[in-house]
Write a protein that binds this DNA or RNA. Sequence first.
DNA 1: GTGGTCTAGACCACA
DNA 2: GTGGTCTAGACCACG
Lengths: 133, 133, 133, 133
Amino acid sequence: MFIELDLQSETPIYAQLVDQIVEGIASGALQPGDPLPSVRSLGEDLGINLHTVNKSYNLLKQEGFLQVHRKKGVIVQPDGMPGVTDAFEEKLRRQLRSLAAEAAVRGMTEAAFTQMSTSLYRDTITNRGGEQR
Amino acid sequence: MFIELDLQSETPIYAQLVDQIVEGIASGALQPGDPLPSVRSLGEDLGINLHTVNKSYNLLKQEGFLQVHRKKGVIVQPDGMPGVTDAFEEKLRRQLRSLAAEAAVRGMTEAAFTQMSTSLYRDTITNRGGEQR
Amino acid sequence: MFIELDLQSETPIYAQLVDQIVEGIASGALQPGDPLPSVRSLGEDLGINLHTVNKSYNLLKQEGFLQVHRKKGVIVQPDGMPGVTDAFEEKLRRQLRSLAAEAAVRGMTEAAFTQMSTSLYRDTITNRGGEQR
Amino acid sequence: MFIELDLQSETPIYAQLVDQIVEGIASGALQPGDPLPSVRSLGEDLGINLHTVNKSYNLLKQEGFLQVHRKKGVIVQPDGMPGVTDAFEEKLRRQLRSLAAEAAVRGMTEAAFTQMSTSLYRDTITNRGGEQR
DNA sequence: GTGGTCTAGACCACA
DNA sequence: GTGGTCTAGACCACG
């Protein structure tokens, strides 16, 4: 597994898990249709409570990133990922604004900020072979 | 006052306040040396408890954005804002990575993501006379 | 518990608690990785409010002496204590200078002052097996 | 005047003033019998409230470091400084213990700590020509 | 059950 | 009147 959790972090474990799975999909490490470990086995692997894993899976299902199949178990959404919803754009705006403001106050230039955003975007999709829409 | 809080939001009130003050500094609405309202009056204005305001002020003091002056009360840091610390860069990286990943998965292009980052950065510093690029 | 508070003292309770915990770590009574009581139980034990305990814990967390672990609760920093930071050296200097000055004015000799410093340093690390000199 | 105040400091202004005057006496800059500025003029010089100066002077009078003469005004104690009282020794112990503990935890050696104490003691009495009891 | 957050009301030191 | 401290009681997210 490519998942790393920081138990000292302020961000809840379930949220870290959600993030890492999304990053896994973005990078191509997880392809549409790919199966995910069962709640129980992943919980064991990571040394965390299975309720926590469950919470992450449920959130990702609600968002449309995962599907829960009665037979195949939990798999990565095979029928196309959800697009840019209003809710997401709103969240993106809010967080970017906050980060940009602090960056500006700390003297980070626009160029540096933009550069960082771009390079982090690129990093996340490294393994996808550029089949970017 | 230019501060707007969403009391229903899941992000803590004190964190929203912190953000808004930082954005105020970034935009130039709050200049170095400017006094901030007392915890009591701001709390009253915003309809929140003074302890909540206090928590925000203290966080900003720790970060070096505010000073508690024995005569002037709470003021915006007059002696130069803190630079880009390791801690901030780390936070920036972590959050940008997470946002970029979800954006990519949802089909937002690199150009769109970069564009959004840049424009939000610009928005935050509109009132500052562009003495930062 | 080895903690004694003087509720009548002019030094805030939370500061006394901070001191005592640091002394506990120095003496070896608290080892890296050791769990601390929950804010509730310690508060009850000491007859103080849990928020006061919380404040102490948070200060110690900021300084890097404690960690808030999502599974183990609050524990003594297991990954190496913070070193001699500029801020600490500054504080040390300021306080020692003040104490030394008053001691000198009151006729305490350099030898007596030095002797007292040394012996108090030794006292604090008695139980640590001398792996620090 | 050799007095410097830090209005951003956590230590109250009156306490800083007390400290600096004691250090002045320790260093010999203020000799027994020397007059101190009036409450009013010192307050003006330092840009602080005269009540604050008053508080400092009163504390120092209580401790026996100053005398208030009806004619000469405020002067440095000419009839011998107060010795090492129980209260002072207690205060000294408490603060040194606290500092020593934190120093030890941060990895400062006994030698370094002792060295620092000694050198700060020496610094305070530099200008006194060694007429140390 | 844990820490985090928020509210509320009170006292005090400080300036 | 200001911030700092302490107490108290409540709700919530987390695991």
